[in-house]
């Protein structure tokens, strides 16, 4: 079971490699990937350096080109695919069928992984991409229970990668329009949800508010802290009650089910967080490496160490973690 870690920039890539990632994933500095944030991602020169650094140490490099180009944008996405082929990444992480079709035709030897943004939640959907685009792996959305993951792994034509730690998308990835409904820009068409230019933090006499394109996402008393205004983690009024109607600020943490994920045949565990600091990437990679090593070497005796949970808990959104949809009652 591989450990796949986020590389938002060169320093993060280096610490992830040193801390024991089996693979790192990165993106270019444009809307071709789902973490299109200012100051993040790689120039071509940095990619070359990163690939050399990682591959010479036995770590694979994946390039995420996992947003959806409109007709007139397609050449830019195709250029990203060409760049990946030229720089010899180990795999391209793609979501769009048009981009996949191009990659298959132009670079038939290039490995394609289906991005989580490709929204494949069943074996039939994964096998569609396997048969049509010869994908070598699929990353699946954070919507399946562990039993459903096992069923998918058993019936899929290709190995399956799942999310192991990081920010929790509550909605099926690739099919969430909440951000673009509020702002015009979202993960599919822009590579980011709640783009920074629409975010407003406002102090009133009694409250601290966060707004997205004018919409009140949350408000707290002045001495409390409030998270980044992603729509699914806001507080709203439903049936005269105010609360986290969709989900609380929390991070996914699969330490307690890692041995099970290994046992059902999951091929790789992914850590979310290209937007996070190198220090975060190092700490999470170290914990996940140690845990996966324990799973691999002593699967019957695997026990989650308190120190691992402590470290990951401290790094989590709202200092809370959850098993998300893997755990049926969360649903």
């Amino acid at each position: 079971m591989e450990l796949v870690c986020p590389a938002g920039n060169l320093p993060s890539l280096k610490v992830a490699v040193k801390a024991g990632a089996d693979a790192v994933y990165m993106g270019l500095q444009n809307a071709t990937n789902a973490r299109h944030f200012a100051g993040l991602n790689f120039t071509e020169k940095q990619m070359t350096q990163g690939i050399e650094f990682a591959q010479s140490r036995g770590c694979k490099v994946f390039l995420a080109v996992n947003t959806y180009p409109y007709c007139h944008d397609l050449p830019t996405w195709q250029q990203a695919v060409d760049t990946a082929a030229e720089l010899k990444v180990d795999a391209l992480i793609l979501a769009d069928m048009g981009v996949m079709d191009y990659a298959c035709e132009k670079h038939p030897d290039l490995n394609i992984h289906l991005s989580v943004q490709g929204s494949a939640t069943s074996a039939a959907a994964v096998n569609f991409f396997a048969e049509q685009f010869n994908i070598k792996r699929a990353v699946i959305p954070r919507v399946l229970s562990i039993k459903q993951v096992a069923h998918l792994v058993n019936n899929s034509l290709v190995p399956i990668e799942v999310f192991g730690f990081g920010s929790l998308c509550v909605m099926v990835e690739g099919r969430c329009l909440l951000s673009s409904y509020a702002t015009g820009l979202g993960p599919n068409n822009h590579g980011a949800c709640s783009p920074a230019e629409f975010v407003e933090w406002k102090n009133t006499d009694s409250h601290l508010e966060t707004r997205l394109n004018g919409i009140l996402i949350d408000q707290v008393a002045k001495d409390e802290s409030v998270g980044y205004p992603v729509i699914c983690k806001g507080r709203y009024q439903v049936n005269d009650q105010i609360g986290y109607a969709i989900e609380e600020p929390t991070s996914l943490n699969t330490l307690s089910i890692l041995a099970e994920l290994k046992a059902i045949g999951v091929a790789a565990v992914k850590v979310e967080g290209r937007q996070r600091s190198p220090a975060y990437v190092r700490q999470v990679t170290e914990v996940m490496r140690a845990a996966i090593d324990d799973c691999l070497t002593r699967p019957d005796k695997y026990v989650v160490k308190d120190s691992w949970n402590q470290t990951l808990g401290d790094l989590s959104e709202g200092q809370q973690t959850t098993l998300g949809a893997y755990y049926r009652n969360w649903q």
Binding site: P69, L74, G98, D101, G118, S122, A124, A125, F128, F129
Partner: peptide, 29 residues
């Protein structure tokens, strides 16, 4: 969803209507 596309392509009468939640953003798709 793409599961339905996959299942539909397996049958002789394979014509289908793509619902709005299928991600078709460009001509090539």
């Amino acid at each position: 969803d793409m599961s339905a596309v996959q299942l539909r392509t397996k049958f002789e009468s394979n014509a289908f209507i793509a619902g709005s939640s299928l991600n078709i953003y460009n001509q090539r798709s």
